[in-house]
Nucleic acid binder design. Structure first.
Lengths: 197, 197
DNA sequence: TCTTTGATTAGTGTTACAGTAATCAAATGA
DNA sequence: TCATTTGATTACTGTAACACTAATCAAAGA
């Protein structure tokens, strides 16, 4: 009758929680408990969808509810063609920068740029680049990459087995990967935020 | 010596919590615990600011606090100097693009740029510029201006009574204001958002 | 071989509790 | 009389503990 006995190495495996990490109790006001639960639900989904993604880097939040700001947008010419006055035909939009420029929040990172090797691509010293780890990059994409521990913004170039990292400044020669050098593309630069002087 | 004795009606008053309501423990994944704490912080502030409001009826909070996005930021080199791996020294920041790049929401406008006359300033065709009408501009500031109904992005130049609008592209000559021409500076370009290709 | 079943371990919501904070009024002292 | 000190009293909070559920395994049975 008894089917008992030792079962070594049995039991629930870890991590088997939907978060794939430990949890800790945090006191939440009753009125916003439902919001937090919804939030956790979203987070769970994201974690399970991205489960194949490496967890070397801490993952950030799912799409939290954002405060949209009403912004009047229009078009303006850098050349000299004629445009209607923004005062007349502005279009009231609720433009949320986060929404517009961050496609995948958990995969999005910000970097401040150091140096002027990418001036030709409109990336200046001190600029902030928005990097999306989930975005697909190809040859000629601008990426943030790590070559033997050195992190840089470059234009990624690949033809067959030849991989180079190109600058956009004649003073900076391309970097060709030599034998034994390791290249990790961290993510694709999707936007550059530049503060003009 | 003894100051003891019954103190009827003494003790901490309710509600004395910053939330003005009960709380309950909710299990939160460790990695997003900081986010939730920030969220609660915001909520607390909102509650305390509205404390003068009558509590006869439950009040709907005006702006629901948004869950700030944690973004891991680091620095990356466009040159070739060495930087530590973001995995090692990432700094968890709650970076909100709106907050960071929009100082004065009602005075902030967005324009899409047409043409390439400002390439030297890192402003390309198709870019979006953030324009702050409330920001002070001076000679050499980049502005959105209206000259006789024509709207443009230019570098504003002023020496005495001489006013010019300069391009940042050798192919585009400066615009000198002639007699009878009207110039209205709409606002100062505070940031340029560029999508590299 | 396949299925059943209890053993075993991980994860979860909630209670309990100890420690802290806030508030009051009696006792004290000026 | 009135301000200050002080301990009593009550509310609040973070977290440990615990009971319960979920997941997984391998031995026993079919």
């Amino acid at each position: 009758m008894s089917r008992g006995g030792i079962r070594i190495n049995s039991g629930r495996k870890t991590p088997s929680s939907p978060y794939k990490e430990k949890t800790i109790p945090v006191r939440i006001p009753l009125s916003i408990k439902p919001d937090v639960l919804v939030y956790l639900e979203e987070y769970k989904k994201r974690i399970s969808n991205n489960s194949e993604v490496s967890l070397d880097f801490p993952q950030a939040l799912p799409n939290p509810p954002s405060l949209a700001r009403p912004i009047y947008s229009g078009q303006v010419s850098a050349g000299q063609s004629r445009f209607p006055s923004p005062a007349q035909d502005y279009e009231q939009k609720f433009l949320d920068l986060n929404e517009r420029y961050i496609t995948d929040p958990p995969a999005t990172f910000f970097f401040e740029v150091n140096g002027d090797s990418m001036i030709g691509a409109g990336i200046f010293h001190g600029d902030t680049v928005i990097v999306d780890r989930a975005a697909k990059y190809k040859s000629s994409s601008i990426v943030v990459a790590d070559v033997d521990g050195e992190w840089m913004v470059k234009r990624f170039y690949k033809r067959g087995s030849v991989v180079k990292l190109l600058s956009e400044n004649p003073e900076h020669p391309p970097i060709t990967l030599s034998e034994g050098q390791e290249l990790h593309v961290f993510g694709k630069v999707t936007y550059v935020i530049h503060k003009p002087e």
